[in-house]
Design a binder for these strands. Structure first.
Lengths: 268, 268
DNA sequence: GTGATCGGTTCATTATTTGAACCGTTGGTT
DNA sequence: AACCAACGGTTCAAATAATGAACCGATCAC
């Protein structure tokens, strides 16, 4: 890990809860020296990635993020393209829908949509990085993404987030086989108590899984009726988004999704 | 300039015209060694700032930009807040309106709005970084921003972009005094032949100029009638945006804008 | 006062970046 | 088919830039 990575890692400290971070806080949170943090933040500030604000001279994200995002969307309109599909899906099914993509070694949430149907819905503001092993999105990407990714992720220690979180790598590998067989992933209370979610993989132009589309609902509402509606709508929407992104669903998964399961399991 | 700055500088190579850049192109454009570029791009890719795509393994901006932009807008809704004002202004005056902010030592365009009134309008897609000395936006920020910025900028060699571009630092300093006196900046064909623009400064919470709001029109249409309408509407809109951003117009400039010019010039 | 913490700076030590040369591939030209 | 140039990527000794303990002045709570 080089100096650049350390500097970029500082930006990961920001979240919706922590929009303003002081120098000493950065040093503590990143485990780096205060002087090192200061120099890096100065360089980040010179390029507009962060800016200092107020009397306390705290740092917050800078306007450069907006410029880069605008360029990214102009070149690859992922977020804008997916957003209407998320909204439609959330409204149709009456539950929270969210979309995440692989960013480095993490799964990061890119967009979400709520439904106004129920007073109690799953909020996604707090989630930023989704744990691979404890969310349906994570399992979907592990199951359909590069095997190397799954190997690396499952080699690391897995955090127990709730009493229901599965943390045994072998047990998770077994679940991934199920995910591969049925074409979507499921997670009940693995991330947060009482939250049940389903997720379908999304693919890029090289037919490689690059993210997931998921629906999260209170476990109490996730009965057989909703579950089967979610399953089919989620898969349809995932196909839509993949197409909008110029991606391709691998034939094997397309077959499963079209209800013609393969006679033999191709992926091991 | 440290390693981090060099790496971040690579991201500035991207533009709407150049969304895909190869390794060797990066090395040439940045003047750095190919190996150096490669290591930096690898680190940027690990954090999702760039991603490799296609058979040619070229690089493009990655999804991390979207995440950071979403966080930035959640914390400081600058772009979203300003956009409706830009649209209204463009429609009212029938010309292209754009907004730029200071990013490091450069003036970068953040947002723009077109009018559907005329077939011929000034397009802003190509502009990304605005030259300080050759645009009304640049002059406005130099005139009302920190003196240190103007000093540094005018100490560097100034490029001649058109036959009308003023490149003499002293002549520009004289123009800045005029800008300060009238409360807005003007530039005729300094940036592009036949484009006439007016700009008003925008201020942050510390009453420091942090950007500019500008209107650009074909010189042929910029007669006395339009010019006076632009002048008053631009100032009103600049005040609106400054307020939306939680900023404060310095009293001296507010007085000028309200038509009560100060008896003596305060800023030198 | 007093002590703790803040953002920021210094400078000898140290670890990292750097870049010329090199590799295997690809794609066009002779 | 042989050739060549340009591509993305890698290597390793030499050079340079990053590092961190100690320090500074300011601020704040007590």
């Amino acid at each position: 890990m080089g100096t650049v990575s350390k500097a970029l890692g500082l930006l990961d400290q920001f979240s919706r809860q922590r929009a303003l971070i002081g120098l000493s806080d950065f040093a503590r949170a990143s485990g780096m020296n205060k002087a090192t943090c200061h120099r890096m933040l100065t360089e980040l500030a010179a390029h507009g990635f962060v800016e200092q604000v107020g009397a306390a001279r705290e740092y917050r994200l800078g306007p450069q993020a907006l410029r880069l995002a605008a360029l990214r969307e102009a070149a690859v309109p992922m977020r804008e393209a997916a957003q209407p599909v998320l909204r439609a899906l959330a409204q149709e099914l009456g539950e929270t829908v969210h979309l995440s993509v692989i960013v480095g070694e993490n799964l990061k949430m890119l967009a979400y949509a709520y439904s106004a149907t129920h007073a109690m819905t799953v909020m996604m503001e707090d989630a930023d990085t989704l744990p691979w092993h404890a969310t349906s999105s994570g399992l979907a990407v592990l199951a359909f993404g590069p095997q190397a990714l799954a190997r690396r992720v499952l080699a690391q220690p897995l955090l127990r987030l709730t009493a229901q979180t599965e943390t045994d790598p072998d047990a998770i590998r077994a679940r991934l086989a199920v995910v591969q067989a049925q074409g979507f992933a499921e997670s009940a209370s693995g991330f947060e108590e009482g939250v049940h979610s389903l997720a379908a993989p999304l693919f890029d132009a090289g037919a490689t899984c690059c993210g997931a589309l998921a629906l999260a609902a209170p476990a109490a509402r996730m009965g057989p009726e909703l579950r089967s509606r979610v399953q089919s709508s989620l898969i349809t929407a995932a196909q839509q988004i993949t197409t909008l992104w110029g991606g391709q669903v691998p034939p094997a998964i397309a077959d499963i999704w079209q209800g013609t399961p393969l006679p033999t399991q191709e992926r091991a």
